[in-house]
Amino acid sequence: MATHDAWALVCRLFAGGTPILRAALSPRESAALPALGQAVKPTTLDQRFVLCPYCHQHRAQVWGGGRRGSSCQCPECGPVAVEADDMAALALDEEWLRRKLRLALSIESRDGIDALGDGVWRLGDSRCSPVLLARDLIRLWREPALLDRVRVAGGAIRVITPKPRETRGAPFGPGVEWLALEDRFAFYGGGISFIGMPGEPPAPQASDPRTPVKGPFSADFRWVTLPEGPHGPIRLTEAQAAVFDALWSFKGEPRTAEQIMRRAGLDSDKPIDVFKVKARDRGKPEAEGPLVAYRELVETRRREGLYWMPCAAAEVSALA
């Protein structure tokens, strides 16, 4: 049940769009946190208010902070001492969510992710159908122009949103397929899997997850195979895969380190930072292989601070 609770928490955080106090989590949600890994991250909220540490029912103003510590005045419980853990909060890494949903739907990374408005993103195309991710289904009802912006002739639109409380059946008309986030996707093995409807053909996938599908990369960018490399298929960390995924999405066009790392959803300053080999790992093929791949596949203009991946441009030309 931990994975089910973990996915329910992801959906709750995405629907809310704001961080929540750890103290506001249910016992099952707290138990599911370790399974989420990088999907959630610690953050801070307004330190002037806190959920009452005693009853967890009322939001109260925080007082003090000196040698005597802090406290809050709960309308039910009266004065209650406040510890640092009572103000700890966490937030969903929404870049992680968007990347994993793209992988679950086999969306080509070269399409990129486009923000269409507050809480609405175009994830790319799945089976020739544009895919929208929205925080609120009602927003799309009120602003149908958002659907018109991505509509293509002869193709349906796939819309992913959390489930509203009262919506049943198909909330949109013909030409729009609704995928409820809670029901049509699941948390699995550190990623997200898509749950197809009965009779729906599965998305095409390679029988071997290491098989190159996007240039030298596997479908999820976790493996790279160099044409003349001695390492064979090279396994990448999630951060390294995110960098290659970001570079691929720019279709071989030079981009700054800031643009690449922002699209990858990482805090490092430069792409090569996540490929550096620690002293204790020198000489180990599993540690040095990703760096070899980076140096062979990524071109740089250091003076201008630009990076690009020529094989991504070659793949685009081949598909044109």
Rank of each mutant, 00 (worst) to 15 (best):
E299F: 00
E288Q: 14
L179M: 10
D86I: 02
L103G: 13
R295I: 07
Q47G: 13
F217T: 05
S207G: 06
K41R: 15
L266Y: 07
A219T: 10
R149Y: 08
R151M: 06
C55R: 13
P162K: 03
L247Q: 01
V213W: 05
L147T: 03
V176L: 06
L13V: 09
G175K: 07
C128F: 09
E315C: 06
K278V: 12
L101K: 04
E108F: 12
E166V: 11
W96E: 07
Q259F: 05
Q73F: 09
W178L: 12
L306G: 01
C74T: 02
L236K: 02
L132C: 04
L33V: 13
A246M: 07
F194E: 01
D273Y: 08
L90H: 09
P227N: 10
E258L: 13
C128V: 12
I157C: 00
A257D: 10
L90F: 10
R295Q: 14
L137P: 01
E288F: 10
L266C: 04
P285E: 10
L21D: 11
G117C: 08
P174Q: 06
G252I: 02
I195R: 15
E228N: 12
G289S: 11
I138S: 13
A6H: 07
R22M: 12
A39E: 08
R280F: 08
P162D: 09
L306H: 00
V152S: 14
E304G: 02
R222T: 11
C77Y: 02
F250A: 01
T225Y: 08
K270W: 12
M309L: 14
E29L: 01
P171L: 03
A318F: 11
R142Y: 10
A287I: 02
R263K: 15
D220F: 01
S126A: 15
F275Y: 09
F14I: 07
V131W: 00
S109E: 15
L21V: 04
A312R: 04
L123T: 02
P204R: 11
G289N: 04
A8M: 10
A6W: 04
A134G: 14
W96I: 02
R263P: 03
L13T: 04
V150H: 08
F244Q: 03
A145H: 14
G252K: 02
D273F: 07
A156W: 12
V159T: 03
V159N: 02
A241Q: 01
R110V: 09
T211H: 14
S26L: 11
T44R: 15
G65H: 08
G305N: 08
H4T: 15
P75S: 06
